[in-house]
Design a protein around this nucleic acid. Structure first.
Length: 483
RNA sequence: CGGGGCGUGGCGCAGUCCGGUAGCGCGCUUGCUUUGGGAGCAAGAUGUCGUGGGUUCAAAUCCCGCCGCCCCGACCA
């Protein structure tokens, strides 16, 4: 008898080569595949369903917080993009261009949107006339194009799907409140739907969005010790309003510029989901974003086949009726063992095994994907027990991921030790910082790590010395190597 | 964009050094037996060896160019 691990022949072990493991899982679980164009991928039905579940949950939250969806065009005239200097400079190397329509060269080339600030601000300047028009709270679900040099499935692709919210307000305070509110929404969806724990924080000057006044982030730690920005929310101040001339007559009968925000999350979240929860058996999905929450595997012997299948279909219909996303794997020609491995690889949170023994006992065997724990439950009680079990899996997965994140967040005050620590993959390191950008750059050169965030209320590091320069530190910063 | 590695049936690889009619395992198709953790037997199908050129009687193999993928570094969600 071989060890259990030998069953997973198709994917690289996570400890052997994390990157290879990630790619294997994404492809073998049929989340995505490479497309013919460099850096582009096809999101396959199983992966897209996960995206739909996350998207729908987030969309509900976006609407519940007073926003409406709209759609702006993919093509942006070059002159629009160039209105905001920092913005252009930030995105210039990554913009794809349309230079011809049919056989005719265009007079002005058109950018494939890398983000929609330019086109949306242009429209806002037309639409906003009075303080009575404010706030404007619009979100769009769209694709964007960024010509990346190095791409990885879901984590960084030339084209990706995202949601971008763009709001305009009367006051700085209102914009600030909005930016922070949406950060909370992201944090909440990450935790409650994807079971991904994240730190909410502020980006430094160097790391913030081109053209933003303040950038907020939800930052999650991956099992290879690198941090991943899972979502961003920007307080844009009046920067874009001034450039795009978004003015209105305010309550004092004077022309004023609006205050704006923008915020977004992308299909990168799927990459985070794979990494945070997956193991050597493959994908591991939390119930709330699993295409199938439950898979039923019938154990078929010739003499009892029809009875087993009949009962399995009853179970299927009962669970479906209760709103569970459930699948009955009644394929011929695959052994139960084969199916067990396949559905584990694809991350289904809960498996039900049903065979002659269970029929006799009036129960069904449940097997959790996260803990691999097996437990028979009586058929009479199926609905209630399964609901509880799925809830528990969701909670336990968040807890496990949270424990990992906390365990791999360490505080270091000594410069030498700081440098040494980043020779490895220490996860997130909390260290004192003097707040100078030069120092930040130097640390990046020395360690490869960047400041991922400061706490929303930056923690005073009075009395400590900056790990970069040794001068008096101001605040605690959170360093990590990043995706 | 720099450094390294790899491109051979769907997948994983051997063959390349030393040129001589392309192979293995898995998967796939059909049939029978099977089915509680990746079943067995039998019969089958599947390749312009990434691509373009060159050398040669002869190229997966030697030479040059290009493309793609992966890993490690600089930029980004």
């Amino acid at each position: 008898m071989s060890t259990e691990k030998d069953f997973v022949k198709e994917i690289c072990s996570r400890d052997v080569d994390f990157s290879q493991w990630y790619i294997d899982v994404v492809r073998k679980a049929e989340l995505a595949d490479y497309a013919p164009v460099r850096g582009c991928m096809v999101i396959r039905p199983y992966g897209y369903t996960i995206w739909e579940l996350v998207r729908d949950a987030l969309d509900d939250e976006i609407k519940a917080t007073g926003h409406q969806n709209a759609y702006f065009p993919l093509l942006i005239p070059e002159s629009f993009l160039q209105k905001e200097a920092d913005h252009v400079e930030g995105f210039a190397p990554q913009v794809g261009w349309v230079t011809a329509g049919g056989n005719e060269e265009l007079e002005e080339r058109l950018a494939l949107r890398p983000t929609s600030e330019a086109i949306i601000c242009e429209m806002y300047s037309k639409w906003i006339r009075s303080w009575r028009d404010l706030p404007v709270m619009i979100n769009q679900w769209a694709n964007v194009i960024r010509w990346e040099k190095v791409t990885r499935l879901f984590l960084r692709t030339t084209e990706f799907l995202w949601q971008e919210g763009h709001t305009a307000h009367e006051t700085r305070e209102e914009a600030e409140e909005e930016a922070l509110k949406m950060l909370d929404v992201y944090d909440d969806v990450l935790r409650s739907v994807m079971a991904i724990p994240a730190y909410k924080g502020i980006k430094t000057e160097r790391e913030k969005f081109p053209g933003a006044e303040q950038t907020y982030t939800v930052e999650a730690l991956m099992p290879d010790g690198r941090a991943l920005q899972a979502g961003t929310s920007h307080n844009l101040g009046q920067h874009f309003a001034k450039v795009f001339n978004i003015t209105y007559l305010d309550r004092n009968d004077e022309q004023s510029y609006v205050y704006q925000t923008s915020w977004g999350v992308t299909t990168r979240l799927i990459g985070a989901l794979v990494m945070v929860h997956g193991d050597d058996y493959g994908l591991k999905l939390p119930p709330r974003c699993a295409p199938y929450q439950v898979v039923i595997v019938p154990i078929i012997y010739e003499e009892s086949k029809s009875g087993i299948l009949e009962k399995c279909n009853e179970i299927l219909n009962e669970l479906r009726g209760a709103g569970v996303r459930v699948h009955l794997d009644d394929r011929d020609g695959y052994t139960p063992g084969w199916k067990f491995n396949e559905w584990e690889l694809r991350g289904v949170p809960l498996r039900l095994e049903f065979g002659p023994k269970d029929l006799e006992k009036g129960s069904v065997l449940t097997v959790r994907r996260d803990t691999r724990e097996k437990q028979p439950i009586p058929l009479d009680d199926l609905n209630r027990e399964l609901g509880e079990l799925l809830d528990r899996i969701q909670v336990d997965m968040l807890e496990a991921a949270t424990k990992y994140t906390v365990d791999h967040t360490t505080t270091i005050t000594d410069r030498a030790q700081f440098l040494l620590t980043f020779k490895g993959r220490p996860g997130i390191v909390r260290a004192p910082w003097c707040r100078s950008g030069a120092c930040e750059g130097k640390m990046q050169e020395e360690t490869g790590a960047t400041i991922r965030f400061l706490k929303l209320e930056p923690e005073s590091a009075a009395g400590e010395k900056c790990v970069g320069c040794g001068e008096d530190a101001e605040h605690w910063a959170y360093f990590a190597k990043a995706y």
